[in-house]
Design a protein around this nucleic acid. Structure first.
Length: 280
DNA sequence: ACGAGGGCACATGGTGATAC
DNA sequence: GTATCACCATGTGCCCTCGT
C-alpha cells in the first residue's frame, strides 16, 4: 500500500494519501528533491507562522555571554527571559508586538508573562539588578550583550524564532524554558546537535552531549532530563530529537524551527528529522 | 548488567492575603 | 511599592521493577 500521490499543483506540491496510517500527506519540492510529510504537520506549522510577516522573525542570543546569565539567574527566570526577549524591537526595546509597536510598561510586561504581582516583581527586580534589562524612563530595554534583534558581527550566536518560541511558552512552564535556555550555548552550528564543542567544524570531532552530560550541565537529575525530552512538544513537533546508534541513545538535537544557528531555513535533513511521521 | 520507565514522598513555584 | 506566609498544584529526585 504505502503513500499514493494524486494531483500535482502548479507550484510543484503534490497531495497524497498514506494508506497505512490513513493520513493525508504532502510532497514539497525542496532543492531538486522532495520532502514528504503529513498535511496535518504542515498545517500546524503554517498556523504557527501565519501571524508573523513574510519571513519568520527571530531574535539572537550571544552563546558565550548568556553563560553569565545562566550562572546568575534561577532556571525559571531564564525561562521568563527567553520568552520576554521575543518582544524586542530592533533596538532591544520591549514592545507590545509586531503590529503594535508601542513600548511596554511594567504592567504590560507582567500581563504578557501572565504572572501575579509577587512572582513578577521578584523576576523583574532580578533582571534590573543584574543589568539584564535596563529601565529607560517608563520603558525597558534588553541588554544587547545577551539578546538582540537584527544584524551583528557576533559569531557564536543562536537565533530564536519568535512565533514558535511564543507558542512554546503557552504549552510548557518557565522551568522547562529555562532548561532549554541553559542548553543554548551547546548547540552546534551545522547540525543543531547538542555538543560540548559547538564551534567545532570537523564533524568527526564533535563531542555530543548524552543524557548524563545534559543533566550535569543543567544541574538536574538524569530522570528529569529524560522526562523533559519526552514531554517538551510544540503542537505536533518535539523540541528535542534523539539520535541512537546500536540501540544506545547517545546524542540529542534541538528543533531548528525554534532555535537555529545558521541564517536562512533549516537544511533538508534537519527538516525531515523534525517533521517526519514515525511509522505506527 | 543496563537503560527505560513507573511510583511515590518530598520539594518547589505561583498565588492571594496580610502587614508594613 | 516590598516582605512574608500558608496553601495548592505540579515538578523532581530517588528507588524500584521490567525487559533485554
Amino acid at each position: 500500500m504505502g503513500i499514493t500521490f494524486t494531483n500535482e499543483l502548479p507550484n510543484g506540491i503534490k497531495r497524497g494519501y498514506d494508506y497505512d496510517t490513513g493520513e493525508k500527506m504532502i510532497s514539497i519540492p525542496d532543492n531538486g528533491e522532495f520532502l514528504i510529510t503529513s498535511r496535518k504537520k504542515v498545517n500546524a506549522y503554517k498556523d504557527l507562522i501565519k501571524n508573523s510577516r513574510e519571513q519568520p522573525s527571530y531574535t539572537c542570543s550571544n552563546m558565550d555571554s548568556i553563560k553569565e546569565v545562566i550562572r546568575t539567574l534561577e532556571e525559571k527566570h531564564c525561562g521568563y527571559l527567553l520568552y520576554l526577549q521575543c518582544f524586542m524591537d530592533f533596538g532591544g526595546l520591549l514592545i507590545k508586538g509586531s503590529k503594535y509597536k508601542d513600548p511596554m510598561n511594567k504592567n504590560d510586561i507582567q500581563k504578557v508573562l501572565g504572572l501575579g504581582r509577587t512572582t513578577f516583581s521578584y523576576f523583574f527586580n532580578t533582571m534590573i539588578k543584574n543589568d539584564i534589562i535596563h529601565l529607560e524612563g517608563e520603558h525597558f530595554r534588553v541588554n544587547a550583550k545577551y539578546h538582540w534583534k537584527g544584524d551583528s558581527n557576533v559569531t557564536n550566536l543562536i537565533r530564536s524564532y519568535t512565533t514558535t518560541l511564543k507558542e512554546l511558552y503557552k504549552s510548557v512552564n518557565a522551568k522547562d524554558l529555562g532548561f532549554i535556555y541553559k542548553l543554548l550555548p551547546y548547540v552546534h552550528k551545522e547540525t543543531n546537535f547538542l555538543c560540548e564543542n559547538p564551534i567545532e567544524k570537523n564533524p568527526l570531532l564533535i563531542r555530543p552531549l548524552n543524557k548524563k552530560n545534559i543533566a550535569r550541565i543543567v544541574g538536574v537529575d538524569e530522570k528529569t532530563v529524560y522526562r523533559k525530552l519526552l514531554k517538551l512538544k510544540l503542537s505536533d513537533m518535539y523540541v528535542f530529537g534523539e539520535v541512537s546508534k546500536g540501540g544506545v541513545n547517545n546524542a540529542y538535537m534541538i528543533n531548528p524551527f525554534i532555535f537555529y544557528r545558521k541564517g536562512g531555513k533549516p537544511d533538508k535533513t534537519l527538516k525531515t528529522i523534525f517533521l517526519f511521521n514515525p511509522q505506527k
